[in-house]
Design a protein around this nucleic acid. Structure first.
Lengths: 214, 214
DNA sequence: GACTCCATACCAACTGATTGGTATGGTCAT
DNA sequence: ATGACCATACCAATCAGTTGGTATGGAGTC
């Protein structure tokens, strides 16, 4: 067994996550990714049959990485579903650390430029986002059942709304740049938190949470 | 005056708006843009000294186009500032028509892939977004002064939040594709509307609108 | 344990196509 | 005839992908 057996493939995928998030899919060249990974194109094409193939595997890699991150995050151990949902949102705010390419979303970045030109990658991104949204929706549904059972809004719908806001927060962050970018994203997520909190704990005489008709 | 005086330049800019929104900045080639515009590269380089220069002018073109669209939109004639803000959000939902490249945002698309590699275009996008956010913020501030004067949230902050949600809605729409994409974006904007409405018309015993601490 | 055999992993150099950008020359209004 | 406008032909650089090859180590045979 080799210490470096499948090391190159993982290094290439890690490099791809970083480079694509920094420059986008089209501008991310194979040479970029290979040089960050510290391997050559020969190795690259040994593991991937094309750039598109690599991107699809990068999406899988991303899904397992982020899936693990959220599955093992501290907020998951909170019992009350409402608190857990809000702690999830807090967690999304807390992980806005480091440079922008470190905390922005691979799927949102790729689908933005490829939705019309690359259906396979677009579908992979759609599925990845839906996968995470479903996890969030599960907690939201549990919280709704307990705190707003009669409300007419759909937990899945709210889950997608959280993802939209977070994706949009990334865009504003990118526009502002590395200094201040994380701050404006956090401000957006703070508003999102307040909205979700209001949906799950509506003041008794308020019709806010009941009246949502998507 | 010539009928064709600056016709080619405008056609090139219009083509650029469409092609860049469809494929992103990097993947949008000069040949793409020229062929959509129906002119040749000779004309292109007569009007623009480089691709970056063209993109910067495209941002200006975009700002004047969208600026005019919102400045003359029916909702601006609504007197009550709260109604006007909510009608603005409704308007954002109403213009989700046609194919995705027709209603998604040039600035959000470009900044997503260029924030680390092209500071000039990034700054132009940031300014364009801030420009529109300021227009929205003005109405939100007027509405706040009338309906939630003691609330601690910042109108500018909320304006940026609206832009983030809309940008994120575009990403979800792109992920879902041309069929259903506009629907999920509209669902997100519906939630946004409800949140902004709650900020501007807080139920008397609710602390929702007052407690926002961004 | 020494041997062949072979799949996996990797590399350096190359290729054809495409890219943004140029050079040059023509057309037309003033 | 001069300058704004635009078309054709072209160029150097760069791109994704190929080529032909080396190095390693494990399986099977004797």
């Amino acid at each position: 067994m080799l210490a470096t057996e499948h090391n190159s493939k993982t290094k290439l995928l890690d490099a791809a996550l970083h480079v694509i998030r920094a420059k986008g899919y089209t501008a991310a060249t194979l040479d970029d990714i290979c040089s960050v990974a510290g391997v050559t194109k020969g190795s690259y094409f040994h593991h991937f049959k094309s750039k598109e193939d690599m991107a699809l595997m990068a999406v899988e890699h991303w899904n397992t990485m982020t899936g693990g991150l959220f599955a093992t995050a501290p907020y998951t151990r909170i019992n009350d579903p409402r608190d857990r949902v809000l702690a999830y949102i807090d967690f999304r705010s807390q992980i806005l650390q480091g440079d922008l390419p470190d905390f922005t979303c691979l799927l949102g970045t790729m689908v933005q430029e490829l939705y019309e030109t690359n259906p396979r990658i677009t579908t992979a991104c759609k599925n990845g986002i839906a996968l995470h949204a479903a996890v969030v929706a599960k907690d939201i549904a549990a919280a709704k059942a307990m705190y707003a059972p009669k409300a007419s809004w759909d937990p899945e719908d709210v889950a997608f709304y959280t993802q939209a806001t977070i994706q949009g927060a990334f865009i504003l962050a990118k526009a502002r740049g590395n200094v201040g970018g994380a701050d404006i994203a956090a401000a957006c997520i703070a508003h999102l938190r307040r909205y979700v909190a209001s949906l799950l704990n509506p003041p008794s005489d308020s019709k806010l949470a009941q009246e949502i008709t998507p």
